[in-house]
Design a protein around this nucleic acid. Structure first.
Length: 372
DNA sequence: TACGCGTGGGT
DNA sequence: TACCCAAGCGT
């Protein structure tokens, strides 16, 4: 037997890797981005999958690849169309960075993704995980892409007693996985661990009976599988109250585009803002519209109340019909403002709450004639 | 290192 | 209800 330079036996998979890959060959999820190995498709899917479940991504991915089948097709699309295709997926900076990176690929790489981790890592929106995932899945490079699934699966397998998100914890997981990964099979190896985490080694009540690695799992052996991975305590999230103005001028309503880099950056919204202590909803809205849009308004009927939970805070939005009293609207806090008809609202990418307000406006506008 | 950045499903 | 948490990245 010839040993490689590192002293390991080449192409000799460990017992764990063999069991894992055999399980994967039989149980791999049939996901649309797995039906080919186009690096562009792998890239798009990986970015969509950041902090997002596969079931959620599937319809977005299919629509995306249908509309933007190549890097060039995507790069030449408008910002608003890209955001509309992304609307509902969240973390909108991902769409912005994806678009930026597409332009770089067209100009510097002939529209092709590089196969090296370091070059991938330089593209906007591609961090350590996504760079490794593309290198492994699309190019079969011997790297480990550590995501939430791998953190959980590997933490249990080796019974890691420290936070796997810490640099020390991640180093442990990576070096262990790299030793186990059969050279040249990183694509299947990485995806097998992800599928194991997504289907069997679940966050709560893992289905150890169905696990191909049940005999190797140290946490199970010690009965601490429910306490892995170790996680730091969470902080409480605040709940804020916000007002929003549906400012009308004849048939049109006013919307503004949020600047890039903030919450819901690049998306359109109904202007308004946070309720300060001792303020009424009405005075809050008059103040906010004065500050943001530079006009005086009269606050009319309440259009609706909308609740939403973001990752770091919870919000209740009170939307009001409003009329212009004095002044010409200006884009002060917004990058752009526009008067649009209710029907045009659907063309403007929006977050969850403003889309709900839009829908309420449209329902009030398009009230079909009552039959009978 | 810690935090801001969305949304939806599960319990 | 309220909380958890999911194929992370950028600063």
């Amino acid at each position: 037997m010839i040993l490689s330079e590192t002293g390991t036996i080449p192409h000799m998979a460990s017992t764990i890797a063999q069991a894992l890959l055999a399980w994967y060959a039989e149980h791999a999820r049939d996901l649309p981005w797995r039906r080919q190995r186009d690096p562009y498709a792998v890239w798009v899917s990986e970015v969509m999958l950041q902090q997002t479940r596969a079931d959620t991504v599937v319809p977005y991915y299919l629509r995306w690849m249908d509309r933007f089948p190549t890097v060039e097709a995507f790069a030449s699309a408008s910002r608003d169309e890209v955001l509309r295709m992304w609307e509902g997926l969240g973390y909108y900076r991902r769409a912005h960075n994806l678009h930026q990176a597409a332009h770089i690929l067209v100009v510097e790489y002939d529209g092709k993704l590089p196969n090296e981790v370091d070059k991938l890592r330089d593209l906007p929106g591609i961090g350590p995980y996504t760079a490794a995932a593309i290198a492994a899945i699309a190019f079969n490079q011997d790297v480990i892409a550590i995501d939430g699934n791998l953190r959980r699966v590997l933490s249990r397998l080796i019974d890691l007693t420290i936070d796997p998100r810490s640099s020390e914890g991640e180093r442990c997981l990576r070096s262990w996985a790299l030793r186990e990964c059969p050279s040249g099979q990183s694509s299947a190896f990485n995806q097998a661990l992800m599928d194991l985490g997504a289907m069997v080694c679940l966050p709560r009540t893992p289905n150890c009976d169905a696990c191909p690695l049940v005999r190797s799992c140290l946490a199970l052996k010690r009965g601490v599988q429910d306490e892995r991975p170790m996680k730091p305590p969470r902080k409480q999230i605040p709940h804020i109250t916000v007002t929003a103005a549906v400012l009308r001028d004849g048939e049109h309503v006013l919307i503004g585009r949020r600047p890039e880099g903030v919450l819901l950056g690049g998306l359109w919204e109904f202007p308004g803002g946070r309720l300060e202590p001792e303020e009424t909803l009405e005075s809050c809205l008059r103040r906010e519209i004065g500050e943001e849009i530079g006009v005086e308004i009269e606050v009319g009927a309440r259009l609706g109340v909308f609740d939403h939970a973001y990752t770091h805070f919870r919000v209740t939005v009170h939307a009001f019909e409003c009329k212009l009293i004095r002044g010409e609207p200006q884009a002060i806090d917004h990058s752009e403002i526009r008067w649009v008809s209710p029907e045009q609202l659907r063309e403007y990418p929006m977050g969850k709450i403003d889309r709900a307000i839009s829908t309420t406006i449209l329902q009030a506008t398009d009230q079909p004639p009552i039959e009978g």
